[in-house]
Amino acid sequence: MERVPILKIGDILLVSIQVDMSDQTAIQLQEDLAERIVATGCHGVIIDITALDIVDSFVGRMLSTIASISKVLDAETVVVGMRPAVAITLVELGLSLNGIRTALNVERGMELVAASRADDWDEAADDEGTETTATA
């Protein structure tokens, strides 16, 4: 079984899926990612699917599950690089990719992760009623 590599870049884990995944490979990726999030304390996961020529219901469900697991482990998931034909097919298939944030490419995905972390800081500061400004 092939395994999808997970790269750490700063506070982000980057997964670029380059192989036609079997279902087992997809499940393994889910588990590997959860472990890496905890081991590294990263707050963002970017899954690059530029090389995927299809996303079927199994892979779609895997993406949703990864997003949910990351959330529980205090990390934000962004799926980037979906091909137009894949997007059209997904919609027709009836898959809504619930709870998944998407961006057009890795760069925008990283911006999205950074922005959502900044929002979290703002909210946390507001909750405490302090006047801390979140400029990290």
Partner: peptide, 8 residues
């Protein structure tokens, strides 16, 4: 697009 739909 049709290839993608059929393969899916």
């Amino acid at each position: 697009v049709d290839q993608t739909k059929l393969v899916t």
